[in-house]
Amino acid sequence: MSEHLLLAPLLESYFRRRLTKQRNATPATMASYRDALRMLILFAATRLRKKPAALVLEELDRDLILAFLDELEEKRNNTIATRNACLAAIRSFFHHVAAADPASFGVAQRVLTIPIKRAHINVTHHLIKAEVDALIEAPNPRTPRGRRDRTFLLFLARTGARVSEATGVNANDLQLERSHPQVLLRGKGRRDRIIPISQDLARALTALLAEHEIASHEPRPIFVGARNERLTRFGATHIVRRAVAKAVNIRPALAQKPISPHIFRHSLAMKLLQSGVDLLTIQAWLGHAQVATTHRYATADVEMMRKGLEKAGVAGDLGVRFRPNDAVLELLNSI
């Protein structure tokens, strides 16, 4: 078999040329695609009883990749979303193969016809205002850690930021002196956005910066750990768990909910939707690439309304309703 069909040079050119230079992929995308292709190669090597370096492209045919995707779900118990994410990485690689090696176009084309698997969309879990407030108030304000925890939880609740966005914020990303304070969030896929922040969050951030003697123009992280390093995803999760452990004494229902840092994002989205903010505004606020992602909140809201009517003995079909968004800032400060 010809050398140009060996996997090694194609993989090297994919990561070095296509993702890095042509696509300008983020480190997170690079890591995700690397892990997906690594799992595929190890699966193929085990299945074909060959060393990974000895694999050739034609051995990664459509049937083998379908078997790999099935194993993700059946043996690894991965979700359909994870399966589709792995398939996206594989398809990206085979797009590169088709362009880089015309002789392999047939192999690539057969792989590229593998469809994304449709998944059932569950109703999005979220918290009511009283539960969010209980979590925010849980940390001890008399300790440095408690003040940091409270500000971090307030940041998640008021901005709807992803964990990586919240932990990645630096002091110079904030504009707290404006009449309407705002923050720059660095989203997935370099989708940066500037969003307004509430007055209570602005006050908490101002106090936190002063406590740590951080000037507003400095590119220093706002949320740091015990060793003064940037807060990690694990640290963020630990903050939320500590707050839940204390808040359940006031709100016992919290013990029955799957609470992670991401639930604050869902909770803000549902609050905005139920207050009349349109989906396009919520999409821009949360940094979703597609409005279809945002639409699940409308679906969840309709489902809750339907269950309420059924409980009250009222039948009928409900449609998604949108109201004009003319007071988002006022709403933000009233949350």
Rank of each mutant, 00 (worst) to 15 (best):
S2Q: 12
P9L: 02
L10K: 05
F15M: 03
R18H: 15
L19W: 10
Q22P: 08
A28L: 15
S32C: 00
S32F: 02
R34P: 03
R38W: 12
A45K: 04
R47L: 10
L55H: 07
L55P: 09
V56L: 06
E58W: 08
I65Q: 10
A67K: 12
F68R: 01
F68C: 05
L72K: 08
E73L: 12
N77Y: 10
N78I: 00
I80P: 01
A99C: 07
A100P: 00
A108W: 09
Q109I: 05
V111F: 06
I114K: 07
P115T: 08
P115V: 00
I116S: 14
I121K: 15
I121H: 14
H125G: 09
I128F: 13
R145G: 15
F152C: 01
L153F: 14
L156E: 02
L156A: 11
G160D: 02
G160M: 09
S164Y: 11
A166D: 00
A166C: 07
T167S: 01
N172L: 06
E177P: 04
P181Q: 00
L185N: 11
I194V: 15
Q199A: 13
D200S: 13
L201C: 08
A204G: 05
A207W: 03
L208I: 07
L209A: 06
E211V: 01
I239L: 02
R241K: 15
R242Y: 06
P252Y: 09
K257E: 02
F264L: 06
L272E: 03
L272A: 01
S275M: 09
G276V: 02
A284P: 07
W285N: 07
W285F: 14
L286R: 02
A289H: 08
T294R: 00
A298V: 09
T299D: 14
A300P: 11
V302A: 14
E310M: 11
G316W: 08
S334R: 15
I335H: 09
